[in-house]
Computed example of a mutant assay.
Amino acid sequence: MDRGFPIACLSAAFAVAALHAPRAQADEVTIYRCTDARGNTTLRDTPCAKGQQQETRSMVRPKDAPNRVVDTAPEPRQQPAPPPTRTIVLAPPQPMYECRMPDGNTYTSDSPEGNPRWVPLWTLGYPAVSDGYYRPGGTRIVRHGDGTVDVNVDGGGYVHGPVPTIAGYGGGTWVRDECHMLPPSETCARLRDRREEIGNRFFNAQPTEREQLNREQRGIDARLDNDCGGH
């Protein structure tokens, strides 16, 4: 670099020249150093005025470094957190039983044991003694496989043979109605039928009965949800 062109001045001149340089000569810039009669020096991008001492310097305009291309991989898309695991515990289906009464009518029950009822022993085939052989508190009847009985009467010993008539009734016993389990599909159908009956009856029921019907319907709804896959 010539001493006549100070670095600071050249930088300023270069900046000015770069703005005014023709487009075709964008890569080369000419700097003019002009000195007038008084010794004042100026730097410009055009030729000096008449009567001024002129010096020129050609410079290559520096180029900006190319833009740095940063290959940034897209951030992985954050997957939403999975919903919390819900654990639902279902109770085993509750069976329903149909029970038959002696008159042929039926009813449903949640227990395999039907309703109890008291019946005389003779209705179950047990023998009864006639008046001639009966002694209160002292009669003992032994029934044999051939259909005969031994009757032990107080003071009279055993009387062996078939009992000819039924003149007296002995004791009785409790028996239960016979029940059998319904298949699951029939159980669900009957639960829905009962719920419909409750709905039809509810509006005409008394307040106390409505409370009972509400409790029963809540139990049916819960059972349908657990055993029958919903209402």
Rank of each mutant, 00 (worst) to 15 (best):
A13E: 02
P80E: 06
P47A: 08
E75V: 01
P62R: 10
T46M: 08
Q25K: 11
A24N: 10
E55W: 04
Q52Y: 08
L43T: 07
Q25W: 09
T42H: 07
T56C: 05
V89R: 07
E75D: 09
H20K: 14
P74S: 03
L19N: 12
T41G: 02
N67S: 15
V70P: 01
V29T: 03
D64I: 13
P47M: 05
D64R: 13
H20P: 08
A81D: 05
Q78E: 01
T46L: 10
E28V: 12
R68K: 15
R61C: 01
R23H: 11
V69Q: 08
A15C: 10
R86Y: 06
P47V: 05
P74V: 06
M59V: 14
V70S: 06
D64L: 15
T42K: 05
A13P: 03
H20V: 12
K50R: 15
Q25I: 09
C48N: 06
Q25A: 13
T41M: 06
V16Y: 07
K50F: 11
R77E: 00
D36T: 03
H20T: 14
P47T: 09
Y32R: 03
A13W: 01
I88Q: 09
R61T: 05
T72P: 09
T35Q: 10
D45S: 15
Y32P: 02
Q25M: 12
F14Q: 11
P74N: 03
M59K: 09
R23E: 14
R86H: 11
A13F: 04
M59R: 12
T85W: 04
P84D: 04
A49R: 08
R33Q: 05
Q52P: 04
T41A: 08
T56H: 04
A17G: 15
A21D: 00
G39T: 03
H20F: 13
P76M: 00
P47S: 07
A65L: 14
A12C: 06
K63D: 09
A37Y: 03
P83K: 09
Q25V: 09
A18W: 01
T42G: 03
D36G: 02
